[in-house]
Amino acid sequence: MDLLNFARGPALQWSLAILVFGLAWRLTGILLLKAKPDFSEPRASGGFGGAMKMIMSRMWPKPEFVRGSVLDLALGYVFHIGLFLIVFFFLPHILFIKSLTGLSWPNLPNGIIFFIGAVSVAALFALLLQRIMTPVKRLLSNFDDYFSWFITTAAIITGLLAAAHVGARYETLLAIHILTVEALFIWLPFGKLMHTFTVFLSRGATGAAFARKGAAI
């Protein structure tokens, strides 16, 4: 079995299995814990509405915090949106998703995808620099932060190289790209990339509790 077949075959199956099992394990590990009942007299209804309110409101910081977060916001949004567009609007990705689910949608032209990819990588490198150079971020950072950065950036760079056919045989480049993404799948449930899911839980939990108290959201 050559590298590409390995990447498309057993490696894909195993990485997806670990992704699904890891997600299920971590999420149930959290969600099966007991939720403490709140007997206090509510000021307003909290629940789903409060959760949704905070999930939406924290997409952007309060005016007081915008100035201090400009770089985080700009770079963060650029690479998150970039990643989203690359993953879901690059033709080979759509074909891959179609092969798994049968669903498909229109793609973005390759030239635009390359541009988005390059900008996203630039944003990720700027974020890495910022993480290393800002005393607060440097103090907070651990292996999880740097490895999650590495695997995300590597996935985009290997994808760009494969799509541009630069540096090695196309099949080898493609295999390396797929294996990198599979490494990301495997890592996702264990590290901070899990915020893809927990962001809704943590914002939702605080939103529901705070809305009930009529507290600031």
Partner: peptide
């Protein structure tokens, strides 16, 4: 949930 969610952004 809180303990699982920090992304070390320092904001």
């Amino acid at each position: 949930i809180y303990m699982e969610s920090c992304i070390h952004c320092g904001m």
